[in-house]
Simulated assay, not measured.
Amino acid sequence: MTIANLPAIRACRPAWNKCHLVGQKRPLLPKHVWAIRVRLELAGNIRDLAIFNTVIDSKLRGCDLVKLEVADVYAAGQVKERASIIQSKTQKPVRFELSEGTRKSLEDWFRNPLMIGSEYLWPGRFHERLHISTRQYARLVRDWVTSIGLEPSSYGTHSMRRTKVAEIYRKTGNLRAVQLLLGHTKMDSTVRYLGAEIEDALAIAEGIEV
């Protein structure tokens, strides 16, 4: 009697995204940005305020933000007004601006004892970890949005990256500028990244006759 080789029966695992919202995370609105800043300032949380301001201005991916070095943003005894790094994902350079408020928060952070002799802008708390991890950064984002009453599942680290460019596009409609600021190599990547903002542009265009 021949015994057929039947496939092994495996226990069904729940889908990884069960009970989770997936897809593009929302950018913060200007009122959200200011609400988080005020809470961090009132709490005297100098490091988190510096991280928050830096990511809003730099528009960097989390993997690049956590690896920022002091030399990337600081030279000749002061914080740079503009900086440039090589992106981990594309190995292409991207430039970004540091506003006056961001530069001030970074200067305050540099005076913290944890920054003495540190190569990295956001040093880790343990000797084997030179800088904070992307997981730690994601937890910070969750804390920030929760602190102002937002639903944390609707926001993530890419919300921080998208926040300023979404506002720039909303006000100017300049896709090329957004592409450069995000460090995208292809325009269609920028179009997909903006998501709903493209629909907004089409709605505006439909309301204008020439």
Rank of each mutant, 00 (worst) to 15 (best):
P152L: 04
W144F: 05
T185H: 10
W144E: 02
L114D: 13
S105I: 05
H127S: 12
S147R: 11
V178E: 11
A166L: 03
W122G: 01
M115S: 12
A138F: 07
K89S: 06
G183S: 12
M187Y: 01
N174M: 09
L140T: 06
L98M: 13
T134D: 07
W144L: 01
T185M: 09
M187L: 14
M160R: 03
G124R: 05
G173T: 07
T90Y: 08
G117I: 02
P93K: 12
G149F: 02
Y137S: 01
A138L: 00
L106R: 02
L140K: 06
D143K: 10
R142C: 12
L175Q: 04
E151P: 00
G101M: 04
S154P: 00
I116L: 12
K92F: 06
T134K: 01
I148A: 08
S118L: 08
S105H: 01
S154D: 13
R125I: 08
D108A: 15
R176W: 04
P152Y: 02
R95K: 15
D108I: 12
W109S: 03
T146W: 05
A138G: 09
E100P: 00
L106S: 02
M115T: 03
N112V: 06
H127L: 14
K89A: 10
E151I: 13
W144A: 00
R129K: 15
Q91I: 03
E167W: 03
K104E: 15
H184N: 06
S153D: 12
V94E: 00
G101N: 14
L150M: 07
L114A: 15
N112Q: 14
R111S: 13
R170L: 11
F96K: 05
S154E: 15
L180W: 02
N174I: 09
E119F: 01
E128G: 06
P123V: 14
S105C: 08
V165C: 04
R135A: 14
Y137W: 08
H131P: 00
R103Q: 03
M115G: 04
W144H: 08
T146Q: 12
G173R: 06
P93W: 12
T185S: 15
R176E: 10
M160D: 00
G149E: 08
K89Q: 08
Y155D: 07
Q179G: 06
H184P: 03
I116R: 15
S154L: 15
L106H: 00
R103L: 05
S154H: 09
A166W: 00
G173Q: 08
L121I: 11
L130R: 13
L175C: 04
R170M: 09
E100K: 13
W122H: 05
T157M: 15
R139S: 08
G117R: 05
T157K: 07
L182S: 03
G156A: 11
G149T: 01
E119D: 15
T157P: 00
F126E: 14
P152W: 13
R129S: 12
S118I: 04
L114K: 10
R125W: 01
V178K: 00
A166R: 01
L180Y: 04
R139Q: 06
S133G: 03
Y155S: 03
Y120H: 14
L106V: 02
I168E: 00
R135K: 11
W109A: 01
I132M: 12
S105Q: 05
N112W: 02
Q179S: 10
Y169D: 09
T157H: 05
W122I: 04
V145M: 10
L182Q: 06
T90H: 09
R95A: 14
K89D: 08
H158A: 06
T185A: 15
L106D: 02
A177Q: 10
